[in-house]
């Protein structure tokens, strides 16, 4: 594993934990899109279906479990925690996220490495991850002031994707590893969405 991949994983982990701790410590999820969080939970569940079938390393398995449980904890807090759920901006968080799920699913059925359950789940998770931040970006644009922590959360998520692209470039030249074109294309779209957000974020 190269440094870019590791930094990518760490910024990703950090973004999720920062958000969970923020919600838990302040007992508030104001400014956080529950729809985006639900999409991420679906992303992790679909992608890490291979947890029991393909063993890569202890590191990979532990990280997969951490991502699934921490995203589920965020969603649980926003839906069920007696104090946190009252701070959810339901009227502002109106993005039709089901549309994204349906579109990602149809894309995965058409464009996949192979027409198998594993590969369709994987492609679906990659497509959905690329656009999962959209409800959060819409919510941020509606709010007057972007909360520092929410801004940092989006920043770390963007950094994660950027590091992953560097990791693919590095692997391409050192290992001759051809990351699948599905990840390249989706990763670029995803990073572009974040770059766009930060362009306006820093302008303000």
């Amino acid at each position: 594993m190269n440094a870019f991949r590791f930094l990518g994983d760490m910024t990703h982990l950090f973004s999720v934990l920062v958000l969970l701790l923020k919600i838990y410590a302040t007992k508030s999820c104001s400014g956080v899109s529950r729809k985006t969080q639900e999409l991420y939970m679906v992303v992790f569940l679909a992608r890490y279906m291979d947890l029991f079938t393909d063993y890569i390393s202890l590191y990979n398995s532990v990280m997969k479990v951490v991502f699934i449980t921490s995203s589920a904890a965020i969603v649980w807090c926003m839906r069920r925690h007696p104090q946190v759920r009252r701070t959810y901006d339901k009227e502002q968080d109106t993005f039709r996220h089901v549309v994204l799920v349906a579109a990602a699913f149809v894309l995965a059925l058409i464009f996949n490495e192979r027409f198998t359950f594993r590969e369709i789940c994987w492609a679906f998770s990659i497509y959905l991850e690329a656009v999962a931040i959209l409800p959060q970006l819409v919510l941020l644009q509606r709010g007057r002031n972007v909360d520092n922590l929410t801004g940092q959360y989006v920043f770390f998520l963007g950094a994660y994707r950027a590091f992953y692209i560097l990791n693919w470039i590095y692997r391409y030249f050192t290992e001759g590893h051809h990351s699948r074109w599905i990840s390249w294309l989706s990763g670029l779209v995803q990073t572009g969405l974040y770059a766009d957000f930060f362009y306006y974020y820093f302008l303000r």
Binding site: E113, R114, E119, S183
Partner: peptide
């Protein structure tokens, strides 16, 4: 043609 390799990234 063989089954695609397992996904080694997160």
């Amino acid at each position: 043609d063989s089954e695609p390799e397992a996904h080694d990234e997160l």
